[in-house]
Amino acid sequence: MKVLVPVKRVVDYNVKVRVKADGSGVETANVKMSMNPFDEIAVEEAVRLKEKGVAEEIVAVSCGPNAAQEQLRTALAMGADRGILVEHDGVLEPLAVAKLLKAIVGREGPALVILGKQAIDDDMSATGQMLAALLGWGQGTFASRVEKEGDALRVTREVDGGLETVSVKLPAIVTADLRLNEPRYASLPNIMKARKKPIETVKPADLGVDVTPRLSVLKVEEPAKRQAGKKVGSVQELVEKLRNEAKVI
């Protein structure tokens, strides 16, 4: 079967983001960009499926600016066969991305789409579920294990307090959680091969998708700074404050 893996270009995991002084967003100029870490896990899972002979072809897709080609190259270096860039410079919300991906699915006909469970920039954790809805496919979200069983996938999901296993009919959507696998490092020969693999570029208009955002960002601010510390009189008071004031336990 063919597997589609969407990958997003995001501010690198190790960068400590700074809110812009005018409150319009976070500073992204001259900041290191990388593939969303959950998407790397998704790519790795697809590559393992290919190595097991379950997947035949892996197509990586990125919706974003032209520079997102770099993230596609990373996916290709990890083992994806070809890339598609849906080029768009403005904001793309998960709903818009899901619509773009639906159009790509329509053209490519994959039996499985594996996405990261969440992008570490907008933290929406929504694109996979939305794509599943638009396609009318089943979803195995927050997956920590995926196995093919006949014409279905057995997906172990990370849920609050434990694990849950569902069987999802193919074609299906899977979103990758942290423990699904540990992504490989691209080898030098594969990085070189990746430069020669094809990347096709399309525009949202070519796919007939309206990507106008539904949300307008009124402001972005830093979370409240730490208050001046205080002494508490007893263990009871401490626990009460941690529960109800700081809300950390």
């Binding site: 709903l95 899901a98 933290d123 579920q129 979803q139 979200t141 849920v159 609050d160």
Partner: peptide, 23 residues
């Protein structure tokens, strides 16, 4: 915004053609 909520609400939102607001 639990695992359960995050699993179903974006799906419902897409079916309604609405952008979900998470967390």
């Amino acid at each position: 915004a639990s695992a359960a909520g995050r699993n179903v609400m974006p799906r419902a939102a897409a079916l309604l053609d609405v952008q979900v607001l998470s967390d």
